[in-house]
Amino acid sequence: MITKKNPKQQLENYSKIFLQIGLALTLFVVYTLMEHKTYDRSDLKSLGQANMEDEMKEDIPIVLIQEVTPPPKDVPVLVEKIKIVEDEMKIEETIIESTETDEGEAIVINTDDIIEVEEEEELLEDIPFVLIENVPVYPGCKGNNTELKRCFTQKITAFFGKKFNTSLATELGLVPGKKKLFVMFKIDRTGKVSNVMARGPHPRLEKEVITVLTSLPRMTPGKQRGSPVGVSYSIPITFEVR
């Protein structure tokens, strides 16, 4: 095969170089167009013209200098005259006598009209039976304080055993055996029994105990420091259910 053209003069060998140069020129033209700034010429006309002459004008007021003349030296100075008026009103002086007592003078107090009254100490709280000075006296009890305490307990136990309905426990169907009742009451200042409280195995038994002890006879009230006081008394009562 015979070559028609000289290989050195073929443009196809330079096609890659021309392509790169063309891309570079295209990118440059695009970049230049993107960075180019344009302005609307119609907006330039609306700005108007700047007039600087009116702003430079300023009205400067004219100040007249006046001459000030000093006052004449012969003008008299007015001085206010003060008139002193004598006070014709007389003020009486008040003489305050001293209330201090001379240490050398003796003070005499008349004690004939002074009556010494002894106040009785009122004891409001109830005193337990074991701490009372003079125990309450059950009717028929005699002796000293220890004997009166022993007699009081015996009489209360005997009175309860006589008046208490022992068959009530059987009627209530309680289990056979020994039962305990805890009783508490108060002998007030008049010697009367009050505030009776009981705790037992059944409410009806408690009610029966309160009924019995409320019927105790009036006693001689207990005394503390010679004055009648309320005395609290408590006793456990044991009975047997058969």
Rank of each mutant, 00 (worst) to 15 (best):
M1V: 13
T3F: 15
T3R: 13
K5I: 13
P7F: 11
K8Y: 08
L11N: 03
L11H: 01
E12A: 06
S15M: 03
I17M: 05
Q20G: 04
Q20W: 03
A24R: 00
L25F: 01
F28Q: 01
V29D: 05
V30F: 07
T32L: 05
T32V: 05
E35N: 09
Y39E: 08
Y39V: 06
Y39R: 01
Q49F: 10
Q49T: 03
E53L: 03
D54F: 02
K57M: 05
E58Q: 05
D59E: 07
D59W: 04
P61Q: 01
V63I: 06
T69I: 07
P70I: 02
P71S: 07
V77Y: 06
V79P: 00
V79A: 12
E80W: 04
I84A: 08
E88P: 05
K90D: 14
I95L: 14
T101C: 05
E103K: 00
I109N: 09
T111G: 13
E116F: 15
E118C: 11
E122M: 09
E122A: 11
I127P: 03
P128G: 11
V135Q: 03
V135S: 14
K142D: 15
G143Y: 13
G143P: 14
G143K: 13
K149P: 07
K149F: 10
R150T: 15
C151K: 08
F152R: 01
F164I: 04
T166I: 15
L168P: 07
G173Q: 06
P176T: 08
P176Q: 11
G177K: 12
K179V: 03
K180S: 12
K180F: 14
K180E: 12
F182M: 11
V183M: 08
V183I: 14
V183S: 07
K186A: 11
R189N: 09
T190I: 04
G191A: 08
N195C: 05
N195R: 06
G200D: 02
L205Q: 02
E206T: 08
I210P: 02
T211V: 12
T211N: 15
K223G: 01
V229A: 05
V231P: 01
E240V: 14
V241R: 09
R242Q: 15
